[in-house]
């Protein structure tokens, strides 16, 4: 069994496999760099400190949402994205904004909003894990209901102009140069990374996503794990909403709609998309690519109306590419 021939073949297989997967992540990173250099060499503005800071700040909401999606997609596979994150970020932003306007202490407003987001995530999780609904049906339905309530609360108005303490996490800077959204995003990324890689919960999430039956047969509480993934996603969506509203200093009932597709796409662009695969770091790279492309469209003055179509096509192409790549990796054996 330990014959050198067998070991040799196994080693070769392993090298071949590692190569492809590693190449893929390296490739994504290289794509990001090339993209930056390419855009930078055609645009004098791109590499300015101001643009970099702006781009990074723009990426924050997307990255925070993307980390949440990473949890649900690892747990439930390609049919598992949380389609309600856009609506959750909207309604929690609305709730926090109105509380701030009502003069409630900003810390309390934040805390309540985050809990609210987690609670909606819990409803998603219950519908999926206990009710047996496919994730895309449950979260899509919840999305419409939640958007509806956000609309009810705002009655179609825009709420704007908040106090400095409320806007702190959106437009202040730490040590005078680190924008607060970036700090929040960094905390989320580190926490997400730690949760997925360093805790038994993360292990269970990967195990459920990689093989739900085997996880169940190993005594892992599958439905609880799914529940937690959607609670995390709801919580992070709420956080993204707070960063968004603190940064833009205004909120209306459709702010989250623009993130429906992109938040999912960045997970696929970062190498996730099959249950048990994907990582926070990959998602960050994916989100940066997405943001840089959007930034480039700004710089080149691509008409706003074409952007949705371009982003949509980009998503389909990357997902298609990533899926083929993953099939190839899986087929290697």
């Amino acid at each position: 069994m330990n014959s050198p021939a067998v070991a040799g073949v196994a080693l070769k297989q392993r090298l071949a496999q590692v190569e492809l997967a590693t190449w893929a992540s390296v490739g994504r990173f290289v794509a990001l760099i090339v993209l930056c250099i390419g855009i930078g060499s055609f645009s004098s503005v791109f590499f300015t400190e101001r643009n970099i800071s702006l781009t990074l700040t723009n990426a924050c909401v997307l990255i925070i949402l993307g980390v949440g999606e990473t949890f649900t997609i690892i747990t439930c596979g390609p049919d598992g994205p949380d389609l309600s994150v856009g609506s959750i970020m909207t309604i929690t932003a609305v709730v926090a904004a109105l509380m701030a306007k009502a003069g409630i202490f900003f810390g309390f407003a934040f805390g309540a909003s985050l809990l609210f987001g987690a609670a909606i995530g819990l409803v998603n999780g219950l519908l999926i894990a206990r009710g047996g609904l496919p994730p895309f049906i449950a979260t899509y339905g919840i999305q419409w209901a939640v958007f509806g309530f956000a609309y009810v609360i705002l009655k179609g108005y825009v709420v704007y102009d908040f106090g400095a303490d409320f806007r702190f996490i959106g437009n202040a800077s730490l040590f005078g140069f680190l924008p607060m959204p970036v700090v929040v995003m960094a905390v989320v990324v580190v926490a997400g990374f730690v949760l997925l890689r360093k805790t038994t919960l993360g292990r269970k999430i990967y195990a459920v996503g990689a093989n739900r039956d085997a996880a169940y047969m190993s005594g892992i509480d599958v439905s609880r794990t799914i529940l937690i993934a959607f609670v995390v996603s709801g919580f992070l969506a709420a956080l993204a909403g707070l960063v968004f509203v603190a940064r833009t200093n205004a909120v209306q009932a459709d702010i989250g709609a623009q993130y429906l597709l992109t938040a999912i796409a960045v997970v696929f662009m970062g190498g996730g998309g099959i249950g048990g695969q994907g990582s926070v770091v990959g998602t960050v790279v994916g989100a940066l690519i997405m943001t840089v492309v959007q930034n480039a469209m700004d710089l080149y003055g691509v008409p706003g109306v074409w952007r949705n179509a371009i982003i949509g096509a980009l998503i389909i192409v990357t997902v298609l590419f990533e899926l083929q790549l993953k099939r190839k990796i899986v087929r290697r054996n």
């Binding site: 038994t200 269970k204 195990a207 990689a210 085997a214 099959i274």
Partner: peptide
């Protein structure tokens, strides 16, 4: 199908039933 998560590492599989 039921015993292993093939895409995870050996160590992760070994400990998957005894994490807690």
């Amino acid at each position: 199908r039921q015993g292993l998560a093939l895409i995870l590492s050996v160590a992760e599989n070994v400990l998957s039933a005894s994490l807690d």
